[in-house]
């Protein structure tokens, strides 16, 4: 609870800056409008106008809040106008991609830790895969998968997976190698099999690393799903809302979609954090 005051202070500072910035950014349009009508705006009128434009460069916080309220609370969640509906479309692809990416990353890490050939060869490719801009790859993945008859959720999930397997590989390789020489020697004195060593020592030891990786993977996965919606003219999802908003200059819609995406990411990462705390505490690892 002692975090409340600092957090609120920061939030307040952001809101103040935000209001200030929207005055600065929207001022020109308001002044131009007034000049065209041969009116002179008082400072109060100018400020009021910059905070209530229909298509502002930077919408004021309360405009975004109103939009969020209307699209989250006042629409049925099945409606295409509901932000909850769009968030769910993106979240479902995120979760599927996250699951696939975690599984793939885990398998790669296993291979790297246990197979010398993979240890020597795989990591550079894994790193190279992440240096390619995802915006360039995403359309190709979607087009190729479409050509073989796969569309809808899976192509987006594939892009999520592409981004989310990376932190899992890196974290799990480190985690599975975290037992000390002494612990590994100890297993050897008991003539433990590789399987027993893995299940009883390496896997439990790797969990702190796994959780740290999962948090990054979840955030990356959401970015992947949104990026997957951008270049394809998707009709649903937070990415589609962003795209539609930018087509029609609906900055309020863009900002509310962004805030929704941030909230979804915070909730998902927060959930992993809770599971992490409970699990590691029970295991005596924190």
């Amino acid at each position: 609870m002692r975090n409340v005051i600092p957090v609120l202070t920061v939030v307040l500072a952001i809101v103040v800056l935000w209001y200030g910035a929207s005055v600065q950014l929207n001022k020109q349009w308001a002044l131009d409008q007034a000049a065209r009508q041969d009116r002179v705006l008082s400072t109060a009128e100018l400020v009021a106008d910059t905070w209530s434009q229909a298509k502002p460069k930077l919408p004021a916080p309360h405009q975004v809040a109103v939009e969020l309220w209307e699209t989250v609370a006042q629409k049925a969640v099945t409606s295409k106008r509901s932000l909850v509906y769009h968030a769910w479309v993106t979240l479902s692809a995120t979760l599927l991609g996250f699951a696939l990416g975690t599984a793939f990353g885990f398998l790669l890490a296993l291979g790297i830790v246990y197979l010398r050939v993979m240890d020597m060869s795989v990591m550079p490719w894994v790193i190279a895969s992440q240096t390619i801009p995802i915006l360039a790859v995403a359309p190709m993945i979607i087009v190729v998968l479409n050509a073989v008859g796969v569309s809808g959720l899976l192509p987006k999930a594939m892009i999520s997976m592409y981004l989310s397997f990376f932190p899992v590989v890196v974290g799990m390789v480190k985690g599975l190698r975290s037992p000390s020489t002494m612990q590994l020697d100890q297993m050897r004195t008991w003539s433990a099999t590789r399987r027993q060593e893995f299940l009883r020592l390496r896997l439990p030891s790797s969990l702190p690393y796994l959780f740290a990786s999962l948090k990054i993977a979840m955030a990356a996965s959401l970015v992947g799903a949104i990026v997957g919606e951008l270049p394809t003219g998707a009709v649903a999802g937070l990415g589609a809302r962003l795209l539609a908003g930018s087509y029609y200059g609906q900055t309020v819609q863009i900002w509310s979609a962004l805030i929704m995406a941030a909230a979804v990411a915070a909730a998902a990462v927060g959930l992993i954090g809770v599971i992490q705390r409970v699990t590691l505490k029970r295991m005596g690892l924190n």
């Binding site: 002494m182 612990q183 020697d185 029970r282 295991m283 005596g284 690892l285």
Partner: peptide, 10 residues
């Protein structure tokens, strides 16, 4: 028996 007890915390 190793230098450190090396008990598993979990």
């Amino acid at each position: 028996v190793f230098q450190a007890a090396g008990l598993y915390p979990w």
